[in-house]
Nucleic acid binder design. Structure first.
Lengths: 347, 347
DNA sequence: ACAATATCTTAAATCGGTTCAAATTTATGG
DNA sequence: CCATAAATTTGAACCGATTTAAGATATTGT
């Protein structure tokens, strides 16, 4: 088996306490013994057992991150940000996928609590779900940060400012001279879709455009949802919009496909704007203009906040809510002219 | 603080050993006391401390997964597969990003060893790197599975069968009547690129086509690498290929972009095939034909193998190497006809 | 040189579980 | 009813670290 602190102590002819002192560089151990023991530790390649340490210290140095699906670029980039910050702090990250299933979300949280992780970052199920497990976290003062609001629960939160993002996108379309701007919503359960709708409406209002109910259509989150709505738009010629703002990029691509198939040109006839900028937009022949989520930054900031909560211990203070700026990524589906050279994304 | 096994024991009026027996449903504890204690556990919402458990059992129920960058769709899908299998086994997964940096890879492995994770799945740096840390794992009989070969180290491995994948893609191009088929390589350090080149060559050979050195060009892994090579191809008209097989999808998209910009039509003038099928191909206007990596399956199988290694304990047996089948995903850049009413019209 | 301090080291308790030989209780059969 | 076997339960050691009061050594001032 691996070396233990006792082995090192015996070899060095000191007590375990002294070795422990060296490991945690306590100032009370003399420089001489410290160096001597350090040398021994190195020589025998001794690696302190973090499990034993965690038990004694009552902290694991591990946090949990629960997302719906790590293979979704949005979440994986969030994860990257989380891991980045945590890595710097010496924390490890356990990832759990809820797959949008309540049972799995609960099971993951329970397991992570048993593992005594120091804190949790959770992208929770939202509307209509039983959220007692989250409420419990709060009651137990377990450090955690949410990546999406849960109605009825006041907790630390980090997310993109959807409303402003949507507002800016819509305003951009208006400034380009578009008059009949449509919005394709996300799935019913997505609060973010409601907020984006709200930003969209505010922009119309500000510029004196009258919202047309026919232009707000329930969509979804997949390409085919957008495609379907695109066909719908085309069927009623009189009200066909000259610009479409979409819940996300997949929907935007779907709606574009429907348009293009029917000879409707993007952006000449209809401009299109997506949301998320989740990796695809830049690869399209006609680059997709989209509201970029600061996904990496969401990950980073939520991790930083979580670290704060963990350090604070006595977190009696009020939860902080952080709304990060989106960035309108202008490409060819509206705004930018098609250029003769590749626009190479940095990153 | 949270309840401990001692608290439950006291409440139930039994010893800690008995409660422990209940938790691990040992057959020696009577049904009656078992039910009674179970009720108490539920009532007080007692959650056993997995840290203490890990210390006593000398196993953590955690595994480590080290990839280059979790925000890369290929790796995030692998991660999904790993987490899926591990979840079923009650294992948690710690993810570490090496960012292609040797230091980080080593640091992650070291930390995970200190955390006494039960095993590791590693996508390692390859060519030219110091791999002693991996060799050490083997020496210490630490259970681990690699997702890419390391020259000189015999270890358990799960990866896609690049060579066969490349062979099939190339053969497909040949069967479509293409005669001058090019290959754009990946970065120098990628062993996978060499294997794909080899598959490509075998296919040419099998069908009696003479390989042309001008058609194998060093590329890279980014869109702009492909774009650059595309321009190169175009500059020497006489040797311009009528089909290009690319190291990955990004390169394929880059080369397509170069072609399209110069009025060369895909697939009519030049067919293009990518590799990976990492999420983008299906979203393009002209769907990208590509060799799909079984990423999820790679994750699943590597996790399954790791679980085996962990269970086996005495893993004196020979490492197993698993090469998973790729799948040629035929879309419009070669092979499939564009679906829908509109054919590929110039804009 | 000696008492008073300042430095360093250690023994033992603790964290919250598991394990197993030994002790206790219950069941069986003659 | 008692001896014996079978079924349960328990006490104490253990996993590998940290922590702190107390003990040991070294240093200082006079």
């Amino acid at each position: 088996m691996a070396m233990t602190i006792a082995d090192i102590a015996k070899i060095a002819g000191v007590s375990r306490a002294t070795v422990s002192g060296v490991l945690n560089n306590s100032p009370t151990v003399s420089a001489k013994t410290k160096d001597r023991i350090l040398a021994i530790i190195k020589k025998y390649d001794y690696r302190p057992n973090e499990i034993a340490r965690a038990l004694a210290l009552n902290q694991t140095g591990i946090i949990g991150l629960i997302v719906k699906d790590i293979s979704n670029p949005l979440y994986s980039e969030i994860a990257l940000g989380v891991e980045d910050v945590c890595g710097q702090e010496g924390l490890s990250v356990i990832i759990g996928n809820s797959h949008k299933e309540w049972d799995r979300e609960v099971a993951h949280i329970n397991l992570l609590k048993r593992r005594r992780v120091d804190g949790l970052i959770i992208f929770p199920l939202q509307k209509g779900a039983d959220v007692r497990h989250i409420a419990d976290l709060k009651k137990e003062k377990y450090p955690f940060v949410l990546l999406a609001e849960i109605p009825g629960i006041e907790a630390d939160l980090v997310r993109a400012d959807d409303e402003v993002g949507a507002f800016q996108a819509t305003e951009h379309l208006i400034n380009l001279g578009r008059k009949r701007i449509g919005y394709i919503t996300g799935p019913q359960s997505a609060l973010a879709s409601d907020r984006r709708l709200s930003g969209y409406r505010k922009a119309l209002k500000k510029h004196g455009l009258v919202p047309n109910d026919k232009h707000v259509i329930r969509g979804g989150w997949r390409l085919k949802d957008g495609y379907k709505v695109g066909k719908e738009f085309l069927s009623c010629e009189t009200t066909c919009p000259d610009a479409v703002f979409c819940y996300n990029d997949s929907v935007a691509i779907g709606v574009m496909r429907a348009f293009v198939e029917n000879g409707v040109r993007v952006p000449q006839d209809v401009a299109v704007v997506g949301f998320d900028d989740a990796g695809v937009g830049a690869y399209l022949e006609t680059g997709l203009t989209t509201v970029a989520q600061p996904a990496m930054e969401i990950g980073r900031r939520s991790a930083m906040r979580l670290v704060e909560l963990i350090r604070l211990k006595d977190n009696a203070q009020k939860p902080k809510k952080l709304y990060l700026q989106t960035k309108l990524q202008i490409r060819e589906t509206c705004g930018a002219n098609k250029k003769g050279s590749v626009s190479v994304q940095k990153k």
